[in-house]
């Protein structure tokens, strides 16, 4: 019985990932190809938009993620050389926000994010100096403040968040188990009811603890 259940579960999961993963990869590839077209034409604005979109359809191990990030970095550096700091900022921010947007149980592209933080903070300060809001001698401290805001992150911790979700489905499952096994066919099965109650207490506690800690 369990073997059959596992086989069915595997088929369902495989089909699910095939449909969803296939779609995501297809979208990533098509946006990347469009971006390459704009890049070849020198239409930087639309190229940035399309590389950014390609990265938003993150697929693990896909070559297009890295290649999009590299292209965006090149465009950013080009804008920087032309002293179009705000446009360079857009290109670097695209890399950074695309990786953040693709977070799951892990954050992909951490090295890229770190490199972009440096660039973006530096560019922000250069823009502020140019407009006269910051004195050049305060540049280093101002950059440190920008970096602080960019580095501090208190998004839910993945492990605790995963435990919160697992605990939640655990106590839901326990109640259903109690209802369907503990009171099957109008008769009370104390053994099943107690198993269910213990499982409920455990998973509910995990849920609460994880919500507080995540």
């Amino acid at each position: 019985m369990y073997k059959g259940f596992l086989v069915k579960g595997f088929i369902v999961a495989a089909l699910f990932f095939l449909i969803v993963g296939g779609r995501v990869f297809y979208l990533q590839r098509s946006h990347f190809m469009t971006a390459e077209g704009y890049y070849a034409e020198g239409n930087w604005k639309l190229a940035v938009r399309e590389y950014d979109t390609a990265m938003h359809f993150y697929t693990p191990l896909s070559p297009y993620v890295e290649r999009s990030a590299q292209r965006l970095w090149q465009i950013g550096e080009m804008f920087e050389q032309e002293e179009r700091f705000d446009w360079a900022n857009i290109a670097y921010s695209s890399i950074r926000s695309s990786f953040y947007a693709s977070r799951s149980l892990y954050t992909p592209g951490k090295d890229w994010i770190k490199k972009c933080d440096e660039k973006i903070a530096g560019l922000n300060v250069r823009i502020l100096i140019r407009e006269g809001s910051v004195r050049p001698e305060d540049a280093a401290s101002e950059k440190a403040r920008h970096l602080y805001a960019m580095n501090v992150d208190r998004a839910p911790r993945p492990l605790w968040a995963a435990l919160a979700v697992a605990g939640f489905f655990g106590w839901i499952g326990s109640v259903i188990f109690i209802i369907f096994k503990g009171f099957a066919h109008g008769k009370t099965s104390m053994r099943h009811a107690l198993y269910g109650a213990a499982s409920f207490a455990l998973s509910f506690s995990v849920w609460v603890l994880a919500l507080l800690r995540a």
Partner: peptide, 9 residues
């Protein structure tokens, strides 16, 4: 938690 696509998707 799915390792594909962006969070909104």
């Amino acid at each position: 938690f799915l390792p594909i696509g962006n969070v909104a998707f």
